[in-house]
Computed example of a mutant assay.
Amino acid sequence: MSSSNRTRPLSPHLTIWRWGPHMAVSIVHRVCGSGLATVGAILLVWWLVAAASGEAAYNAFTNLFTVSSGKLNAFGYLFGIGLTWTLFQHMGSGIRHFFLDVGANYELKSNKMSAQATFVFSVVATVLVWGYIIGVKG
């Protein structure tokens, strides 16, 4: 086939499309899903190895993610908050994609609003969950 055939239409390029929240939520949904699967698998294996290795290894694992000796472990809390936000963001955008799959919510205004709502939902749900967790422990 000749490379000089100019009658074929060109594929749309990123310079044609305007960036919007619907594109961002789709990309973040994929990143969150991959991250949850990867981090979840790593944490599960790490937890199983720590549990099988004895009390000292298991205590080292749990001390990283919990309050130990009355001392707050900032890494564990930040990691937990990030993982919780990722879960809620993935869940919110998954519900949004479910409505898109059944043919609803393709109007531009409502599509943009639902994309923005996934980010608001994930932040609010994370704040509520961690507010409860810290309130119960505090």
Rank of each mutant, 00 (worst) to 15 (best):
L78W: 03
V102W: 00
V39E: 09
S34T: 02
R8N: 07
V28E: 09
L128K: 10
G40A: 07
L72G: 02
A51D: 10
L87A: 15
A52F: 11
F75T: 03
V124E: 05
A104D: 09
N5D: 10
V31N: 07
N59R: 15
I81K: 04
A74S: 05
G70L: 06
S69A: 10
G103D: 13
S4N: 13
W19D: 13
L128I: 15
I81T: 08
T118S: 09
S110Q: 13
A115L: 12
A37L: 15
G135A: 06
M23V: 10
M23E: 14
I95V: 15
L14M: 05
S110L: 10
P21K: 15
G82M: 03
K137T: 15
W46I: 11
L64V: 07
A51V: 00
L83H: 04
G80C: 04
G70N: 11
H22E: 14
S68G: 04
L10K: 14
T84D: 10
A117H: 00
M113F: 01
G40V: 06
L100S: 09
T7D: 00
E107A: 14
T118R: 00
F99H: 09
I81G: 03
L14Y: 08
E107R: 06
L10T: 13
V123E: 05
V25Q: 08
S93M: 03
L78K: 07
M91C: 05
W130Q: 11
F65G: 04
A104R: 15
A60F: 09
I16G: 03
G33L: 14
V127W: 08
V45Y: 10
A104W: 10
A41D: 01
G135I: 00
